[in-house]
Structure formats: structure tokens, C-alpha cells
Computed example of a mutant assay.
Amino acid sequence: MNIKTRRYLAIFVTCTATLALYGTAAYRVEQARQQPRVYASCNVDQCIPHNATLNSLK
């Protein structure tokens, strides 16, 4: 294997690894986006919606 072939092989492996990492990250973001969100934080005696502000609780 000459130096030119090794260089192209190194470029190919680097691009493949980069695309694999990007694809994995995009897949994980998409899976997290599809998870159902919890719209309220509930304790034993009360539930407060996540979008509630102190002004709206008065």
C-alpha cells in the first residue's frame, strides 16, 4: 500500500467516523424529542405547571 492509498484510506476512515458520530447524536436528539414531556411537577400536596410564573400563582 503506497502513501497515496494510505492517505485516502485515512480520510475515508475519518469521514466515516465523523458521520457516524453525527448520525448517533442526531438519532439520540430525535429520540429525546419524541419522549412525552411531563407538564407538571407534582409533590405530595400540590402540582405546579412548568410554565407557571409567580405572578400567575397569585
Rank of each mutant, 00 (worst) to 15 (best):
N2C: 07
M1H: 05
V38H: 10
I48Q: 01
R33N: 15
R33Q: 14
V29H: 15
A25G: 11
R37T: 04
P36M: 08
R37L: 07
Y39L: 15
A40M: 09
N51Q: 12
D45K: 07
C47T: 00
L21K: 01
E30Q: 14
A25D: 13
V29C: 08
P49I: 00
T24W: 11
S56G: 00
Y39W: 11
S41F: 07
S56F: 00
R6G: 05
P36E: 11
T5E: 15
V29D: 15
N43G: 11
N43K: 07
C15V: 15
I11F: 13
L57R: 06
L57V: 03
P36A: 11
I3C: 01
I11D: 10
R7K: 11
F12V: 10
Y8D: 14
S41E: 06
R7Q: 12
Q31K: 15
S41D: 04
V13Q: 08
D45H: 04
S56H: 00
T14N: 04
K4E: 13
D45E: 07
L54H: 03
S41G: 02
K4N: 09
C47P: 01
L57Q: 10
R37M: 05
T14F: 13
T5W: 04
H50Y: 10
R7T: 12
L21Y: 08
Y39H: 14
A52C: 00
N2P: 06
S56E: 09
V38W: 05
I11R: 13
V44F: 07
A32E: 14
C42Q: 07
T18H: 04
A25K: 10
C15W: 08
H50M: 03
G23D: 02
C15N: 07
I3A: 09
A10D: 07
R33A: 13
A26V: 09
K4P: 00
Y22S: 11
A40Q: 13
Q46N: 05
I3Y: 03
Q35L: 13
N51D: 14
L9D: 13
P36Q: 12
R33V: 04
H50E: 04
V13H: 04
Y27H: 07
I3M: 03
N2I: 03
K58Q: 08
Y27L: 14
S56T: 09
N43A: 09
G23M: 01
H50V: 02
R33P: 01
Q31E: 15
Q35C: 04
K4D: 12
V44R: 13
P49G: 01
I48N: 00
P36G: 08
Y8I: 10
P36N: 09
L54I: 12
A26Q: 12
P49R: 04
T53E: 01
P49V: 00
C15A: 14
Q46H: 04
T53W: 01
Y8K: 15
K58A: 07
I3V: 03
L19K: 01
A17F: 10
N2A: 03
L57D: 02
T14E: 05
R33C: 05
A32P: 01
Q34W: 05
A52W: 02
L19H: 03
E30H: 15
L54W: 09
T14L: 15
N2Q: 03
C42V: 08
V44D: 11
L19C: 14
N2S: 10
L9G: 10
I11H: 10
T16N: 03
V29L: 15
A40Y: 09
A17N: 05
L54S: 07
N51F: 10
V38C: 05
Q46K: 09
T14W: 06
T18K: 03
T16Y: 05
Q34P: 03
T5S: 14
Q34K: 15
A26C: 06
